[in-house]
């Protein structure tokens, strides 16, 4: 394997085929991809293009059936067992019987952090996602946006370098989503993490990413990888600039190309 030293995720000819009663389904086929340290990589594509499946392969929640993949230079299973990544799901998946604080502590309890360490980290991560003072609330007492922020705090609590996010803001309204996107960028700048982010929103992908991976379905594959020329510092207004619109246009073209032979 000749992945460079700074490569966090490295996929070579990756494939995944589900055996279903209707015959095999090719969720991923021949995916080659490098995610460098510090990257913010978005995966965009229509549903069924395998973007979530790819994220789940990185997280060792699915096993690839072809090709190779390394995460931090290890197999995904080793990476999972050494707690290399934090995963944010489509829904907050907070445990309703635990307070927000206790939910954030959950991974720390499992990983055996000391009580004082747990306390410090909960405080720090709740501050990071602007939920200071909400620690004693139960998840169902908070709004959807706050719940999703708490689930991000939970993924950040144990300081994994890699953050995997599967359409985390998909269920939220536009305004809350803008706000959370802005916060996510700040968080990324502050923590210097590598982020893999699945979305089906073009503006979201362009606004957030340093690298946009455009995917197409049946079989799931990568059709284009776009390196963003936007600066790292991005106010929300950047979405009105010609540069932004040009990248968005290229993403849209890529999506359309992937779609063209269907319909």
């Amino acid at each position: 394997m000749n992945a460079s030293a700074s490569s966090v995720v490295s996929a070579r000819k990756l494939g995944l085929t589900f055996q279903t009663s209707d015959g095999p389904v090719h969720a991923l086929s021949v995916v080659d991809l490098e995610v460098e340290k510090g990257d913010f990589v978005s995966f965009i594509g229509p549903s069924g293009c395998g973007k979530t499946t790819f994220l789940r392969v990185i997280a060792d929640l699915e096993k690839n059936t072809a090709g190779e993949i390394t995460v931090n230079g290890m197999t995904p299973e080793e990476a999972r067992k050494s707690r290399c990544y934090g995963y944010v799901f489509q829904a907050p998946a907070l445990y309703p019987w635990r307070t927000i604080e206790k939910n954030v502590v959950l991974p720390l309890e499992i990983m055996g952090y000391s009580k004082t360490e747990q306390k410090q980290r909960v405080q720090r991560t709740l501050d990071l996602v602007n939920l200071t003072g909400f620690g004693k609330k139960y998840p169902w007492q908070l709004s959807g946006g706050m719940q999703q922020r708490a689930s991000i705090a939970r993924a950040l609590a144990f300081d994994a370098d890699l953050l995997l996010m599967d359409e985390p803001f998909g269920a939220l309204d536009e305004i809350v989503r803008d706000h959370l996107n802005e916060q996510l960028l700040k968080l990324w700048a502050a923590t210097e993490k590598t982020i893999c982010f699945v979305t089906h929103s073009i503006p979201e992908a362009v606004y957030l990413s340093t690298k946009i991976v455009v995917m197409s379905p049946r079989p799931g594959r990568v059709t284009d990888v776009i390196h963003s020329t936007l600066p790292r510092e991005r106010p929300l207004e950047i979405r009105e600039t010609p540069e932004f619109l040009e990248i968005a246009h290229r993403v849209r073209e890529g999506l359309r190309a992937g779609h063209s032979y269907e319909e």
């Binding site: 929640l61 990544y85 995963y87 829904a91 959950l106 991974p107 499992i110 990983m111």
Partner: peptide
């Protein structure tokens, strides 16, 4: 999703049992 979460923490059988 909750079980995947526990798996992503590399949580053991008993931990998943008691906590989830």
């Amino acid at each position: 999703m909750e079980r995947d979460l526990m798996r992503s923490y590399a949580s053991g059988y008993w931990q998943t049992l008691v906590k989830l």
